[in-house]
């Protein structure tokens, strides 16, 4: 069904001027400990386009868990520690719309009136979610080496509504000639993750993810793909719990595996 406003114009923010030869990778805390493969695939996808990837080893988290839990002071402490690590004026690529949204949308608010405000704003302006970077900046063309498969796509709320992504992930999947994307009926509806919401309001979250799983299974897809490890952890955990045959994967892993 159609809900919410239709997609806005495809390119919605200024592109970097001149060719991009170097980027930072902000790996995110969830990818770091639970799905490092998504970070590795991100590096491979970027390197294949001739881009040098820098991964500051001192990085940890954007601060979102505390920020969304009523603890801005602790969020600031963690976010502040990231700022000096990303000081070069090059794009920062993130394999997550949610962490990207935290930095782009919320860091300026979090650091308003703080000594780091200008630096935080500068970083916010340089943040790119992986798929928007691949589509709009690197303009990749992908060659599919995989066997025919039907997948479905789960849009993360923050990728759509904080980073302003429209159809970038699906444009990438559309380049894979053997892949069919079967759309969800309620693609724009939240999967029920919401960070601490999933444990604070576990029952509501459970009802949301149950509906999401039913929607996914209804597509007949073999795999559900997503661009955010929070959503994927929620969805794959629920699919596994109910013994579903549908697998799940981060977009970066899926793209790399089929095109390497």
């Amino acid at each position: 069904m159609t809900t919410g406003p239709p997609p806005s114009a495809p390119v919605f923010r200024p592109l970097p001027t001149g060719p991009v030869t170097e980027v930072y990778l902000f790996g995110t805390c969830l990818v770091d400990l639970f799905t490092p493969s998504a970070g590795v695939s991100t590096v491979r996808l970027l390197q294949r386009e001739g881009v040098r990837v820098i991964f500051p080893q001192g990085q940890s988290c954007c601060g979102q868990p505390a920020y969304n839990s009523g603890h801005p002071e602790e969020a600031r402490t963690v976010a502040r520690a990231q700022i000096p690590l990303f000081c070069k004026d090059i794009p920062i690529v993130i394999p997550s719309g949610s962490c990207g949204g935290m930095i782009r949308q919320h860091w300026p608010h979090l650091f308003a009136g703080q000594p780091e405000e200008a630096a935080a704003r500068a970083i916010a302006a340089r943040v790119w979610e992986l798929s928007e970077f691949l589509v709009h900046v690197l303009k990749v063309s992908l060659e599919d080496h995989g066997t025919p498969e039907t997948v479905t796509w789960h849009s993360s709320c923050h990728a759509m509504r904080e980073m302003g992504l429209t159809d970038e992930p699906k444009r990438l999947l559309g380049q894979l000639k053997n892949v069919t994307v079967a759309p969800l009926q309620r693609e724009r509806e939240c999967c029920g993750f919401g960070g601490t919401f999933a444990v604070r309001h576990a029952d509501v979250s459970a009802a949301m993810v149950a509906d999401k799983c039913a929607d996914i299974e209804g597509t007949g897809a073999a795999t559900v793909l997503g661009g955010d490890c929070g959503c994927l952890m929620n969805i794959s955990g629920a699919l596994e719990h109910k013994g579903s045959a549908v697998g799940s994967q981060h977009l970066a892993d899926y793209l790399w595996e089929r095109t390497k």
Binding site: L25, G27, V31, D32, L33, F34, T35, P36, S37, G39, V40, V43, F55, Q57, V209, M233, N234, S236, G237, A238, E240, H241
Partner: peptide
């Protein structure tokens, strides 16, 4: 949901 599983090695170490 199934329990989330920590990876055997972090992204930091892998990279």
């Amino acid at each position: 949901r199934k329990k989330p599983r920590f990876a055997a090695q972090s992204l930091h170490r892998t990279l």
